[in-house]
Design a protein around this nucleic acid. Sequence first.
RNA 1: GGCGCGGUACCCAAGUGGUAAGGGAGAGGUCUGCAAAACCUUUACGCGUGGGUUCGAUUCCCACCCGCGCCUCCA
Length: 507
Amino acid sequence: MALRLHNTLSGKVEDFQPLNDNKVGIYTCGLTVYGYAHIGNYRTFVFQDVLRRYLKYRGYEVNQVMNLTDVDDKTIKNAQAAGLDLREYTDKFIEAFEVDRELLNLETPERVPRATDHIDGMVKLIQKLIENGLAYSSEGSVYFRVANFKDYGKLSKMDLEGMRAGARVDSDEYDKADARDFVLWKAHKEGEPYWDTPLGRGRPGWHIECSVMSMQYLGETFDIHSGGADLVFPHHENEIAQSEGATGKPFVRYWLHAAHLIVNGEKMSKSLGNYYTLRDLIAKGFKPSAIRYLLASVPYRKQLNFTFDGLHQAQQSLDRLRNFRFRLRQEKFPEGESAELQARAQAALASFEKALDDNLNTAEALGAVFDLVREGNTAMDEGKFRDGDRAAFLKVLESWDRVFAVLEDNDFEKLRKFGFVKTVEGAVTVDAALVQDAATGTPADESYTAAVLAEALPDGEIEKQIAERNEARRRGDFARADQIRSQLAQAGVILEDTKSGTRWKRK
RNA sequence: GGCGCGGUACCCAAGUGGUAAGGGAGAGGUCUGCAAAACCUUUACGCGUGGGUUCGAUUCCCACCCGCGCCUCCA
């Protein structure tokens, strides 16, 4: 069965067929780097990563471009407020974004170009639009003449006449001939960064960078373009106008849009106090892998209601999967293999692929793997599981995780690597500066939960205590054994006695 | 007002014209020195409301109610 994806352009789920054999060109709208990215951004980025990973899983050769918009009103304003040069300011948040991406296991796209490195290309594209009669200058700025592009509105299904009638008063001080027109190049204003170009001194408008960078790296027509639902209009609509207006060719074949994340049923916003960056959640003790799991578990076209309860549930679900993998790897089973279980593993893999083929139905894909987990655990409990079944089951988990990328429990390593937590004299400290939400200036919650504190105990120390406890158990000194177990529990380490020995995990 | 998405158990959530996946949480049980993990049982006679089509609808059609998003800041 073929991969099917919902195309915003047609409003339908379509069979996916790349332009060139098995090569797929994808442009994913990245971040405007005016501050730390928030979890709403990451909902979209996780979706894009799942898409990317599944395309690879399906054998496609992926060429992904993710832009960084490092010049716009907000970046300029925030840089000025911070007393930094625009480049210095955006460098800082690009770096933070890279850290976040690694924490969330987002694969690095083939290219991550910055808008300000492509000014020349923007100028050329704008000149081409002027030549084609689709753009005009006014007071040193250049605007796109929407009325001259007949397909305008085809992506967002906007009613052009309605737009004209209902257009808001343009608060911008630039002069446009028509309220619907949008700016391609902004004339220089005192105190703002600028580039001297054949178009005059100024800076680019918001949408042009995406047209330029996508076509430069992926060609004038490419396969997939994606982003958050809010970008359908005006951003992507304008990109189509700019690109097709210049080339006369279809710009993008499949447009994919992720529904928004809301928090406790409300739109996330700073004024409501429900605005979270990844760092905010880390500061509250949540694991990046659990955050990724939550963001990936709801199919991308469905609005995701983020709650702390939901995040907790995600962590619990993830633990179940990890427990199963642990058992699969560690437990001893009789020789041989079970034809029935082998068939079940095959069926689970097929269900998983069928679910993702269906417009990336991650919730259903999750169901497929949990079914197998239960069946595997049952077989083990009943003594029906065979050593030869191990590989087949592990393969399903590994296949699943090639797309979900959450099973590896290495959150602490990463948090330590980036300095979010440090071990000082046996205790964990949190780097307050790093987990601070710079956008709001609010200091992060300094009380780390046991989830992260637990990570501080070195493995060797934990194992030493387990050995001591097991010795006590052998002596029948259960009081001592329970004391050790509860001490470890307080430090966030959970012990589990199994037939093949005591295992432990960090909570 | 226009365009769009959605309303499924305590929470998250899949899904089909033929009688409701999966996860979390709760309760009871098995196992365990006790736990944990795991397993079993249990929690929607019902899928926003009202009509309609049909032998039969949660699934199709119509109307209505509610939530959310977009309508040039926004992933």
